[in-house]
Nucleic acid binder design. Sequence first.
DNA 1: AGCATAGTTGACTGATCGGTCAAATTAAGT
DNA 2: ACTTAATTTGACCGATCAGTCAACTATGCT
Lengths: 209, 209
Amino acid sequence: MTRSPTNTREKLIETAKDLIWQNSYGHVSVDDICKAAQVHKGSFYHYFPSKIDLTLAVLDSYYTYSKPFFDEIFNADMPPKERFGRLAKFGYEKQKEAKEKYGRVCGCPFMALGSEMGGYEQAISDKINTVVKENQKYYSGAIEDMIALGELPKDTDVKAKASQIHAYVVGHIMLARVQNSLEPLRDNLVEGIFDILGVSEKQKHKEYA
Amino acid sequence: MTRSPTNTREKLIETAKDLIWQNSYGHVSVDDICKAAQVHKGSFYHYFPSKIDLTLAVLDSYYTYSKPFFDEIFNADMPPKERFGRLAKFGYEKQKEAKEKYGRVCGCPFMALGSEMGGYEQAISDKINTVVKENQKYYSGAIEDMIALGELPKDTDVKAKASQIHAYVVGHIMLARVQNSLEPLRDNLVEGIFDILGVSEKQKHKEYA
DNA sequence: AGCATAGTTGACTGATCGGTCAAATTAAGT
DNA sequence: ACTTAATTTGACCGATCAGTCAACTATGCT
């Protein structure tokens, strides 16, 4: 290297994250990103061979940012049930931050891009599905710990439960974006996870008609 | 009217449904739609003032198509719990049809377009949120019927449960698209609904460690 | 036959798209 | 000071974008 590193590449990624998260891949042009990042187009293509490659870098950046949070949330030293409680809180908090920063609920960038581009961009799909599987592994680990603690039946179908919880969580966050509303996340998210696991407190003192 | 009706408008809508469902709004151009529908561009703009208006008509078409299915699924003459079973079957069947027809799991067009365009197209958001609310009303009705039958506690938070089930269902369908996989829908969808409701059969004969 | 009107045609527009490139600039190593 | 290579610049490209329009055609009505 004959020159000290610049932050141009990172500026492009951060700007793209902002614009694409709020809008969509298709609605944001390379020119938009360059203009907002105050970077000339030639520089963009110096760092990224294509708009798709920038988008892959955006996904990597989201992943790298999120991983420590997930590692902390699913810290094996904490009771497994609590981990899901922290997960729900994290989901709500991050969407709240986005709403305060961007003026709207932005949802999950992985699911949004997976849905938008999954049909025609395999590289995007592949990256996202890696993240999806890793996510479900966090859930599986916590479920297994709950089984070991006797909080869930021994014959629990761990993968099925993890898949259900994951679908439920991403569904809530997706709906939060579509409805541009934080309330369901704040009020209903965590309880549904416990319901799916069959460990809801509320379900224990039922009063029927 | 001084001329017999043509099917040009419907051809454009059906073609747009095909292309946008498989891909996305941003990835499909007006020219793409016209070419696939074998309709000239002037005709497109004879029927639709803009690409957005065509997309709104696409959403209307999905809605009109789906409504009779939902009315049948949530037919009040059938036991309410069974309605959710039929809903899950319907979700799986429609995705299976799409996979057979298009070669991939296409997901939910409402959620996909709501996620893609919600950030910058209010007219799209408004239409989709009407559908979302109506959907949750079907769920609420069935939940209320279950309460009346003594299958759920009297103090059940109906709206919260409906919101949770809806999030769970759309999350599964969204993930099915992103993962391009039908299996979770087929194997895990219905059970999670019953878990959220607290009426899962499986949860009744638990065997703990 | 002739008028009125819905529908069709396809060339056209200006803007924007993703992407290219050669020249200029910068700064570290020698 | 000179070399070297990373980085920046901004003009430029052909393709494609959403949308326009005036001419044309088809058909039902009187």
